[in-house]
Design a protein around this nucleic acid. Structure first.
Length: 420
RNA sequence: GCGGGCGUAGCCAAGCGGUUAAGGCAGCGGCUUGUGGCGCCGCCACUCGGGGGUUCGAAUCCCCUCGCUCGCCCCA
């Protein structure tokens, strides 16, 4: 019988790895609590149209990376490729915005049909923040600061924050026309991918990784020059906020996010230690999205961070937190003894301590070996005679091989454990 | 979707056309029927991701396929 395998790009998270995940999640929760950001959970599956309308038909994510299928009712459904569209849809549908601005965070799996590589999977996990109704430029700084402080608190070193302003929709329309004209004029000198993007998504040509294209782009029209005075002023205030907060950043006029809903502030936090998929956290302002999805005009800013990439950085930096070590390892053999062992384990647990019971039925020697491996300080042994007397032999596993076993009733044993 | 590299036991691996496919860790059994950590002894791949081919002979060469991996692309 051939064993079944997980689908390509779908990864199992094993206990040894999850210690680190849980640390990240707990830290994130705490940071969000302090920032008065509430959790929201939305379905993994949404109507395809939500993402098509929200993220943009012309984007790669929508164009070729979605897990889309028809359900039994012939509705087109899509496994969410990102979190923002769903959160905005929920806020609109549940009338949350009628109660005022919403500060929300979410976490969980996202799905994109891509070729897996380091830091990129088909099912991956994000934690994200959405500040709906956050109008002022300082909110951009606040959102970034929340991400920055979380990463710093987790102990991630060597991160770089890159910042850009995409201006208003009008700015971009104007700039796009300028850029397309320029690109057309230099079409012959562009790499094939970039040539294709002149029509599909011209702004994305800007952050092409092709060296020749990059060199050529030095002479291209600059998005910053196309920004209206209000956009400039807005961007100035965002930069000022970051300066006030002491968060270092680098301006990157080529930074263009791949999702259509971004405008004004766009940012990425990346690490040079991650290889090709270097972005740990990305986000920006999306003032038009709520309205575009049928809600009240609502300015908003947010970001998402990639759990796998973050965990990758943390495990390279330090390693996982230790596995759970039981306080007591309970060894038993024989039916009466096993029943007593279960009773004892439960009593220890109800007292707030960690008890692991060996249910293997193996020889005592074998069970002792496992008791040692578990790292437990104490082992309790229950055999036929102990079971008959209602006692257990308590052994200090850190002691020498001498016979230090004490026969104790369960209450006495608990008392010893309680003392450490 | 396009390129490069790699698949030998649960894990780490040696072998790179010719006898029984090294070794280590883990596991199992024993020395030591109910007492661990150390040590010693023994066992643990009819078979080298799968399929086909070349050859007297294939883990070793070729083709296909699946998977992993690193890039491109894209993004978290």
């Amino acid at each position: 019988m051939e064993p079944l395998q997980s689908l390509r790009g779908m990864v199992d998270l094993l206990p040894e790895r999850l210690g680190l995940w849980q640390r990240v999640e707990a830290t994130a929760r705490e940071h969000f609590r302090r920032a008065a950001i509430a959790e929201i959970r939305t379905p993994l599956l949404e109507a395809t149209e939500l993402f098509a309308r929200g993220i943009g038909e012309g984007t790669d994510v929508v164009g070729k990376e979605m897990y889309t299928f028809f359900d039994r009712g012939e509705r087109s459904c899509t496994l969410r490729p990102e979190g923002t569209a769903s959160v905005v849809r929920a806020a609109i549908q549940q009338r949350l915005l009628a109660q005022g601005p919403q500060r929300l965070w979410y976490g969980g799996p996202m799905f994109r049909y891509e070729r897996p590589q380091a830091g990129r999977q088909r099912q991956f996990h994000q934690i994200g923040v959405e500040l709906l109704g956050a109008a002022d430029p300082l909110s951009d700084g606040e959102a970034i600061a929340i991400a920055w402080d979380l990463l710093a608190d987790l102990g991630v070193a060597g991160l770089e924050l890159e910042l850009n302003s995409l201006g208003t929709l009008d700015d971009r329309v104007r700039y796009r026309a300028e850029l397309v004209a320029w690109l057309e004029a230099h079409r012959q000198q562009l790499d094939p991918d970039s040539q294709q993007r002149i029509t599909s998504n011209p702004l994305r040509v800007l952050d092409s990784k092709h060296p020749d294209t990059q060199a050529l782009l030095a002479g291209a029209p600059d998005l910053q020059d196309a920004l209206c005075p209000e956009s400039h002023e807005r961007f100035r205030l965002v930069r000022r906020a970051l300066e006030d907060l002491g968060i270092p950043f680098r301006l990157n006029p080529r930074l263009v996010r791949g999702l259509d809903y971004y405008g004004h502030t766009a940012f990425e936090i990346s690490s040079s230690q991650l290889g090709a998929q270097a972005t740990v956290c990305g986000g920006g302002r999306y003032d038009g999205l709520v309205e575009q999805l049928g809600g009240p005009a609502t300015p908003a800013v947010g970001w998402a961070l990639g759990m796998e990439r973050l965990v990758l950085l943390l495990s390279e930096a330090g390693g996982d937190p230790a596995a759970v070590v039981p306080d007591l390892y309970v060894i038993s053999r024989g039916e009466a003894a096993e029943r007593q062992a279960l009773t004892l384990a439960r009593r220890v647990r109800r007292a707030g301590l960690i008890a692991e019971r060996d249910g293997s039925g193996a020889a005592f020697g074998k069970q002792f070996k496992r008791a040692d491996r578990s790292g437990a300080r104490w082992a309790a042994v229950i055999g036929e005679s102990e079971a008959a007397e209602g006692v257990a032999v308590l052994k200090d596993l850190r002691g020498e091989a001498s016979d230090d076993g004490r026969r104790l009733p369960f209450e006495g044993l608990l008392a010893v454990l309680a003392q450490g």
